[in-house]
Write a protein that binds this DNA or RNA. Sequence first.
RNA 1: GCCCGGGUGGCGGAACUGGCUAGACGCGAUCGGCUUAAACCCGAUUGUCCCUCGUGGCGUGUGGGUUCGAGUCCCACCCCGGGCACCA
Length: 817
Amino acid sequence: MSEHRYDPRAIEPKWQEIWERERIWEVSNDEVEGAPKSYVLEMLPYPSGEPHMGHLKNYSVGDAVAHFHRRNGRRVLHPMGYDAFGLPAENHAIRTGEHPRDSTAKSIAQFQTQLRRWGLSIDWSREFGTHEPRYYRWTQWLFLKLFERGLAYRKEAAVNWCPVDATVLANEQVIDGRCERCGNLVEARQLEQWFFRITDYADRLLDDLEDIRWPSHVKTMQRNWIGRSEGAEVTFADPETGSEYPVFTTRPDTLFGATFFVMAPEHPDVLRLTAGTEHEQAVRDYVNKALTESSDERSDTDRTKTGVPLGRSVINPVNGERIPMWVADYVLMEYGTGAIMAVPGHDERDFDFATTFGLPIRRVIDCEGELPCSEDGRIVNSHPDFDGLHNRDALEKIVDWLDEQGKGHRSINYRLRDWLLSRQRYWGCPIPIVYCDACGMVPVPEEDLPVLLPDVEDYAPKGRSPLAAAEDWVNTTCPSCGAAARRETDTMDTFVDSSWYFLRYTDAANDEAPWDPEVTNRWAPVDQYIGGVEHAILHLMYARFFVKAFADMGLLDTQEPFNALFTQGMITRDGAKMSKSKGNMISPVPYVERYGADTARCYILFIGPPEHGADWTDKGVEGVHRFLGRLWRLGADVAASTGKQEPLGPLDSPEGDDLELMRKAHWAIDKVTEDMAGRFAFNTAIAAVMELVNDAYRYRGTVHPQTLHFATATAASLIFPFAPHTGADVYDMLTGDRVWEEPWPAADLAMLERDTVEVVLQVNGKLRARIQVPADASREALEAMARDQERIQAHIDGHEVVKVIVVPAKLVNFVVR
RNA sequence: GCCCGGGUGGCGGAACUGGCUAGACGCGAUCGGCUUAAACCCGAUUGUCCCUCGUGGCGUGUGGGUUCGAGUCCCACCCCGGGCACCA
C-alpha cells in the first residue's frame, strides 16, 4: 500500500550520529534535585575475537532497561569497558605469535565498532580497558590496601596447578578436577602463592544474600559454595603417643557410634605415626598412590572405598572406647582438620568403608529404615544420660558436656577457601611487591604506581612467570632500604581486575584515586546487573568480597555491589551451544547489516523469556523485521496524511472503532509497562506492541486520522527501548519530537475498563453460553440474567440446582444434580 | 545420589493471584488479493476428532486426588535442562 520503504541502513546511522554528536547518553556525576539515580550495568565483555550473539543479547536487555528507566525520570548511568587481561588473549598469542597487546587492541576495536553499530545508549566517556595502566594502577593500589589490612597474604599450600596453562588456579576455576580454561586435569602442587582472605567474609557473604534481589538459584549456588556447616570440634587422643587429634563433625549426636577413625593421606602425622612399625610400608605405599592420583579419580564417589590401617588407635572422648586409626583417601585434608571420626551406622561413606573392611557398625539413633541412616530419631545404645532423647536435643547436650570436659566445643566449618590470586602468566596486572634480602616483602609505594607490565618477547608459560626473564624489570631497589631487590613476577588473576570495574565507571577519569567516595556513593551500588549465569560463583562472589572489604576501609558506603541481578540464558544454534571449535558460531554482523540493529535486538528479545536459553532461527528474524517494517510504513503513511503534530488529544469521546483502537493503545501501554517494570518479559512486551500495530492496520480505514496517529505514535514510543532507531524515527515523523525526551507513556485507566464485559456461563463447569453484561452487574443480577438464557435453561431444566457460583464480571456456574 | 528449573499446536513461546472461552505474538503451512510473473506487501484459515460440522466430543508428559471449576494446587511416576557431588 505504501511506497515508503523501511530502510534501517539509512535510519540507524542517522540517529546514532545524533546521539553521538550531542552526547545524549552521557551523564554527569553531579547530583540533580529530585532525580533518582539508576545504575544499569551489563557484565563487561572479554575482548577476544568479535562480539557474538551472547553479547547482543546481554546488551539488548541492558539497553532496554536503561531506556525504560531514563524515560521514567531516572538519571541512568550505563557505561562500558573491557576485561582485557587474561589467559585466552595470551593463549591466542602463543598460538598465533600475535602479541596479546595487539590482539586485544584489535578485538576491542571490533567491540567498539559493533556496540556503536547496535545503537546502545552508552556513556562512552567512561570507557576503559582493565589492561590500561590508568586502570590497573588502581588495581595495584587496591591490592596494596588489602595487603596492608592482611587481606592479601602469601603462603605455601597445596594448590591447583594446570600443567597445560602452566599456572596455578583458584579453587573456583577447577571444574570436576579440570582446568576451567583448557579442560586438562589439574595437579596438586605445594607452592607459595598469593591469596585474598575471602574466608574472613564467609558469614557476611552468606548473610547479606538475604538483602539482594538475585535469582534464587544464584543465591543457592553461592550458599553451597560458601558451604557453612555448624557442628563441633571433638578431640580424640592417643595416650600412648600423647597426641591429640581434633575432628570436625556436624553430628556430635552420633559420637557413641564412632567405631573407627580416619585420616587423609596428606595428613602430616600419618607417616610419623607408622614410622618404624610393621604398617610403615603399606601406609607409605598407600599415601604415595593417593597423592599421585588425579583429583578426578579420587573424587569418584562410585568406586569402592580404599584405605589401610595405621596399627594405632585413639580414644573416643565420650565413652573411652579405643577405636582403630586408618588412612583413606575419602577423607580430604582441605576440609575440617583432615581427620574424621567414622560413624558407619549413620554416614553412608563410613558405612561403605566399614563394609569393605569388616569394621563394626553400630546403631545409635532409632531412625526409620536400615543402616546407614542419617535421619533424626531417638538416641539409643549411647549413654543413660542421652538414650531416649531426640537426637537434636542430645546433640546440644553432648556438645555442652564435651565443652565442660575440655574435649570439644562448638565449631563452624566452611567449604569456601581463600582466593588464590597469583598467576605465573604474562598478560595480567603485575603484583606491586618487591622482595628485599634485608626487609623481606615490601609493598611498592603508592607514588611509584603503576608497576608497568614490561614488554616481554617470550611470554610462553614455562612454569614460572614469563616476567622473571625481564631482568631489567625484575631487578630493582628496595623501596624501604634502597638495597638491590627483586620484583614479584607473578601477575594477578583476571578476576581481580573485574572485581571492582563497576566502581571505576562511577569516577573513571579520577587520577588521584581509584574513585572519590563522595562521587561513587552517589552511584553505587549497581541497581540492575545483567549477565550470564556462568559467573554465578566466581565473579559475583569476588566482587561482593571486594566491596565489603572496601566498605570496611571506608572507601564505600555500600555493602553489596549489585542490588539486583538478572541472568540471561544462552543463545544456541540448532539446540547446540555455539563455540568456535564446533564452527557453529553466529556472528550478529550479517544480521545487523542485512536487517538492521533494531531487528537483531528485537528478535533476540522476542524469541523467548530472556532468562531462558533460546535457539536462533533465521526465519524468526525475518518475522521481527516484517513487524518493524509494518510499524515504520504505518508511521510514514500516517505522517504523510496528517503531517507532524503533537500527539493529539485524540477524539474527545471516541466511539466504535476509534474507541477500540484507543483502548488497544492504552492496553499496550499498560502491558509493556508491566512487563518492563515487574519482570523482564520483553518477549510479551514486544508482542503487545505487535498487537497494537496489527489493530492499527485493521482499523486504519475506519478510524479518524488522529486516532491512528495516536496509536502509531504510541507504538513507536513503546518499541523504543527495544528498537531505538525505529522508535525514534517513527516518533519523529509523526510528532517532530525526540522520543527519548518524552516521559514514558501512562495508560489511561478509564480506557482499560469497559462498560460491558463478557461473562462466561457454565453448567457443572462446562461452558454453555456467554453474555454481555454491564461491568458492574451485581451477583444477583448476573445470576438472574444467566437463568434467562435459553441454553442455560436447557441444561438446568429437570435438574436440581445445588449451588450457583458467581464471580462478578467473570462467570456464573450452575452446579446441578 | 541430592538441590533447583521445566515438559502446552508442525516450531519458538502466551496464559500475573485456580475462573476475562487454553494456544496471545511470531515462525511455518494453506488459500485469496496485488503483479505479465515472482519477491515484497495486504487479507483469511491453521490443536485434534467426526459421512452427525454442533456455541459437538477430546485436548497442557503419565496415573491418581482436591475443587462448582485445574496448564495453574496436592501425591506418585516418566522425560529434559542446569547446579552440586566422598565437605564429615
